[in-house]
Amino acid sequence: MNGCICCTVRGDLVVALKKLYSKISQFDAVIIETTGLADPAPVAQTFFVDDQVPEMYTLDGIITVADAKHIISRLDDEKPQGVENEAAEQVAFADRILLNKIDLVEEAELAPIEERLKALNPTAQIFRCEKSRVDPTNLIGINAFSLEKTLQMDPEFLNTDAEHEHDPTVSSISTKFEGFLNVRQLDIWIDEIIRTMGANLFRYKGVLSVAGKKNKYVFQGVGMLFSGGFVDAEWAEGEKRECCFVFIGKNLDKTVLLEGFMDCKCSEELRFKIGDSVVVRTGMHTYAAAHIIKLWDDANAYRVQLQDEEKTQMFVPIDEEDFVKVPKKADGGNADAAWDD
């Protein structure tokens, strides 16, 4: 009921399936997406342990997406005694495996990766792909799940009283706020997060309302691989603009992640207006006099024109003192004089 299906046979999933059944006469299938760290076995149990659900639904197949660049390291993760390796569980229970992101590894690496996956699950079909592009006919309506095969692999599959333990060092954090975010400040923060936490980041993603832009900004990443950009979808007139993110990983410093994301929050109202004289940062420790010539230009807070012979134009990404400030009054009263830092 909280929108998340993890790895426990819960009454709310059964209730949801039963309610859905009365509404799906026009549906071809129901697709259930669990969390990335779920053990698939208890979710699959849902289709067998209730009296009514098996009469309403047939479990067609279990699909697992394996990240070609990271799957081996995830399978090799050392877990405390008694703690399950979710990546290994997902591969073992799969009827189809999408070996995704093959463009991020060398061709010669793919065969050994597939051998490792087949060692865990010799019967699952493996499809190499990029961005999970696979013909849907290979994934839906395949009648691939076999209870008999599953019980051979896991005799305790139908034992709903059995307990399984997750790695306590793996957790997630998510938050959202209403308003706007400075995407240039986000870029700086993400670079820092990747550098300091990248090895422990399993998955992170977000949808953002960027100041000065009508289009929504979507980012996602795995480990030290990050991608983000504006999508075609725009914020509709009257739609509540908000920013949200989720990070999943190991030994996460939740305070650092939360505070860092919130530090990217900004207002579309800027301190300066077009025509104002300012001093802008042009290097690590250098500043120069300039005039504001445009507000919110390509998601940058300002475009300015320097007061040099070439009348150079440049972006000021963030509306903060470190990047742009009011000129000091020089002895002669020249308000355009640059700060002497």
Rank of each mutant, 00 (worst) to 15 (best):
46 T>G: 04
46 T>K: 01
46 T>Q: 02
46 T>R: 01
46 T>A: 08
47 F>G: 07
47 F>C: 09
48 F>E: 14
48 F>H: 05
48 F>G: 09
48 F>T: 07
48 F>R: 06
49 V>S: 04
49 V>E: 10
49 V>N: 03
49 V>T: 06
50 D>I: 12
50 D>E: 11
50 D>Q: 09
50 D>L: 14
51 D>M: 12
51 D>C: 15
52 Q>H: 13
52 Q>R: 15
52 Q>V: 15
53 V>N: 00
53 V>P: 02
53 V>W: 02
53 V>D: 00
53 V>S: 01
53 V>L: 04
53 V>I: 09
54 P>S: 12
54 P>C: 10
54 P>W: 07
54 P>A: 14
54 P>Y: 07
54 P>N: 12
55 E>V: 13
55 E>M: 10
55 E>K: 11
55 E>Y: 07
55 E>L: 11
55 E>T: 10
55 E>I: 12
55 E>W: 07
56 M>D: 10
56 M>R: 06
56 M>Y: 05
56 M>W: 06
56 M>L: 15
57 Y>K: 06
57 Y>P: 03
57 Y>W: 09
57 Y>M: 11
58 T>A: 11
58 T>H: 07
58 T>K: 13
58 T>G: 04
59 L>I: 10
59 L>K: 05
59 L>G: 06
59 L>P: 04
59 L>Y: 02
59 L>M: 14
60 D>K: 04
60 D>Y: 02
60 D>R: 06
60 D>G: 09
61 G>R: 02
61 G>K: 01
61 G>F: 00
61 G>Y: 02
62 I>G: 05
62 I>A: 10
63 I>M: 14
64 T>F: 09
64 T>K: 10
65 V>G: 08
65 V>M: 11
65 V>L: 15
65 V>T: 14
65 V>S: 09
65 V>I: 13
66 A>Y: 01
66 A>F: 02
66 A>H: 01
66 A>G: 01
66 A>Q: 00
66 A>D: 00
67 D>A: 12
67 D>N: 09
68 A>I: 10
69 K>M: 11
69 K>G: 05
69 K>S: 13
69 K>V: 10
69 K>P: 00
70 H>Q: 12
70 H>P: 06
71 I>R: 07
71 I>P: 01
71 I>G: 08
71 I>S: 12
72 I>G: 03
72 I>D: 05
73 S>H: 02
73 S>V: 06
73 S>F: 04
74 R>N: 14
74 R>Y: 12
74 R>H: 14
74 R>Q: 15
74 R>L: 13
75 L>G: 05
75 L>I: 08
75 L>Y: 02
75 L>Q: 05
75 L>F: 03
76 D>R: 00
76 D>L: 01
76 D>E: 08
76 D>F: 01
76 D>Q: 03
76 D>S: 03
77 D>C: 08
77 D>Y: 04
77 D>A: 12
77 D>K: 03
78 E>G: 01
78 E>W: 02
78 E>N: 03
79 K>H: 03
79 K>L: 00
79 K>V: 00
79 K>A: 02
79 K>R: 09
79 K>D: 00
80 P>W: 08
80 P>C: 13
80 P>M: 13
81 Q>R: 07
81 Q>F: 07
81 Q>A: 11
81 Q>D: 10
81 Q>P: 01
82 G>Q: 09
83 V>I: 11
83 V>W: 00
83 V>N: 03
84 E>P: 00
84 E>M: 13
84 E>G: 04
84 E>A: 12
84 E>D: 14
84 E>F: 03
